[in-house]
Design a protein around this nucleic acid. Sequence first.
DNA 1: ACCTCCTGTAAAATTTAGATTTACATCAAT
DNA 2: ATTGATGTAAATCTAAATTTTACAGGAGGT
Lengths: 150, 150
Amino acid sequence: MHISAKCSVAVHCLIFIYEYGEKAKVTSELLSRSTGINPVTIRNILSSLKKDGIIDVKSGTGGATLKCAPSEITLYRVWKAIEPDFLAKLIGVHSTPSELCPVGRNIHDVLDSTYQKIRDDLSSGLSSITLEDVLREYHGALEREDKSVF
Amino acid sequence: MHISAKCSVAVHCLIFIYEYGEKAKVTSELLSRSTGINPVTIRNILSSLKKDGIIDVKSGTGGATLKCAPSEITLYRVWKAIEPDFLAKLIGVHSTPSELCPVGRNIHDVLDSTYQKIRDDLSSGLSSITLEDVLREYHGALEREDKSVF
DNA sequence: ACCTCCTGTAAAATTTAGATTTACATCAAT
DNA sequence: ATTGATGTAAATCTAAATTTTACAGGAGGT
């Protein structure tokens, strides 16, 4: 799974947990069915989110709940929790250049400084979006869905 | 290879072609040795760059040369040439959600609109960087390299 | 206390996407 | 013609990651 898809799964889970976490017992099995991703991968994702303090997972009895206000959960935080060096993976350089070639020797330095601004922009973009924003979109989509039924 | 790494290889090739394309015959074999990527993949990359009009590759006798001024070659153009839907691949959504779940049914719409701004930022960031800028970095790195010898 | 359900991991098996290899038709210059 | 290169296509290989399987450990209900 592409790292961005993995983070999308994480957001999917967070929406689900926000919506149902208080009323029902949200297990990895349930999230697995909703996302289409197997339970072990879901547990790994939840585990990362838990370590970051974004959610709480009851061990033993099971069930996940949000531990933060949606407005405090930025996409940056989620991506970082799932994959600490997501920036380098997302905007990266090939690792095989030849040390014998002037271009090969320097390509890493050159592209790293070139990519820095892009990475920074990406970071601040992700930082500016919170789960609250995503939930707003989600509820909008739900409403449109309801209307289309009638 | 991650798509960003592939585009980095493309930029690597472009630097190489700029530096040596006029003096020497820059073949896929040569670029293969410099980048550490096999000749066929290099030829595929060159083929994409050629189709976009960024470079010219002499068929028959061989050798690649730039067809544009470095100032006209933006990173956006390069990435787009290599992978037309790189934005969706870079910032994407999992494709397996359940249609039976409200979250699953809507996650694609929700995240697509959420990601739109991020994708736009990324586009304009990549559009604002040209091969000219990269070459400037490269020549700076070369100078530092020379100095460190003495 | 026991039983059940779930988490948290680890290890093995499987998948799959992509790279590499191989092959060859085509083209241009010597 | 011969040589050396491109441009693809097809087969093979590889490596990364998911999925499967397995199991120890925790928490609550009976």
